[in-house]
Design a protein around this nucleic acid. Structure first.
Lengths: 229, 229
DNA sequence: AAACTCACTTGATAAATGTCAACCGGATAC
DNA sequence: GTATCCGGTTGACATTTATCAAGTGAGTTT
């Protein structure tokens, strides 16, 4: 069975419920590539020849303009990235680099568009995925425009704590410098934002965050499902 | 013919190429509503019962958080808005208010989702629309994170000039206070940003912008198709 | 015509954020 | 074991942006 090695990605939301034929068609020319850490696998502005799916490791999506760089998102297994460019046959708007050693499936864009035309179930999944990405991006813009950097950090911590199981202590998922860039501030500013959140019960020791009093932090952060999921 | 009064919207991209049956199904329970200026027609957080299409006038999409408000986008005829919420049956992430007297078609979400399931052509159009909105939102985030307010204004002016026919003078499409909010700054800051752009050949008189030397402004603004289309 | 409204502008000041340089301390290299 | 590297932190300072208050001027009301 030619698709055996792709069994891991059979279960991602994007491929849920699609016919076996469709899946085979998608995988027939797909291949898995192993990347070392810190390798740029996509450069913004290039045309989108492949849909990418992260199997293991993690991928940072980032963008550049005039000597500035900013982290836009991080992709964790198992999910695809940059599907909008694939569907529209337009250039990537973001670059991508591995954060760590990563295994990535590369599905030719032509095949994605082909199956998209033929398999209504797949088309539906693409829509759901796109709508979800779009909404996430809107939330991101609201976060940036309506909140200060301290508030963005506070809400980020609450979200991360929740995902980690809502315990009092949890690890940051990536380097502080990347977190700073993701949250739209400098590393120095992030450092000071952490200090400022001490009065709201937050203490950091390296990668570990201690949240003494989530209620107090919530009072400051004012999270809402219309921005923070 | 029951859909006669909806002939104006038959031609929008979203409905291009869909069967007559599908169009009738979409319009069977749809209705046109006239709104005076400055009326809130959607409130963020509410569930999405209708897909909206602006026929005449214009609609401002905005968002609130903790006593702050920001303009996210403006919708001009003829286009739909907030399709992602409709498709995902999730609450609106943005509020909408008429900027001026406006005629708006309201299509029940249930019908949209119905036709979406049955008409592959419509589903395809929805995907294209969503992918386009998503990419616009990514560009917006890049604009906010990578540029200063002066740079955002400069690029906005170049974009507007281009759309207006690339002449030396062109009108702003809306109030400066809304423009300021859209660009993510205060009205005072916008005012000063305009003054600062004088040295790059920009002069404003009320709603009219004079751009003496686009080349000089481009040099400062460094527009790129990866942010500014 | 006078009064009023309201968006816009300007000035003074404050707050938020960025920049540059120095320093710290754990991890790695030699 | 010492030196080096590098991410993170801290301090001093600059820049950007917001806030508050006052003033301007076109358009509208009375």
């Amino acid at each position: 069975m030619p698709t055996a090695k792709f069994s891991e990605i059979r279960d991602i939301e994007l491929f849920e419920g699609i016919s076996e034929d469709s899946f085979v068609a998608l995988m027939k020319a797909a291949y898995i590539q192993n990347f070392p850490p810190n390798v740029e696998i996509i450069t913004e502005g290039e045309t989108s020849d492949f849909l990418h799916v992260v199997l293991t490791g993690s991928v940072e999506l980032f963008a550049n303009w005039s000597n500035n760089e900013t982290t836009m998102a991080t992709v964790w297994p198992v999910s695809s990235f940059i599907i909008a460019a694939t569907i529209r046959s337009e250039p990537y708007l973001m670059s991508a680099r591995t954060q760590e050693k990563s295994r990535i499936v590369m599905v030719p864009s032509a095949d994605v568009k082909d199956v998209f035309e033929k398999d209504a179930e797949f088309a539906k999944n693409v829509v759901t995925e796109l709508a979800s990405c779009y909404r996430a991006s809107i939330k991101n813009a609201k976060n940036l425009k309506l909140r200060t950097s301290k508030e963005r950090l506070a809400n980020y911590l609450l979200k991360t704590q929740k995902k980690s199981g809502a315990g009092q202590s949890f690890p940051l998922k990536y380097e502080k410098r990347r977190l700073a860039s993701y949250l739209g501030m400098t590393p120095e500013n992030l450092s000071r934002a952490f200090s400022a959140l001490r009065e709201h019960g937050v203490n950091v020791d390296g990668q570990i965050v201690h949240m003494e009093n989530p209620g107090k932090l919530i009072e400051f952060a004012k999270p809402t499902h219309l921005i923070d999921e």
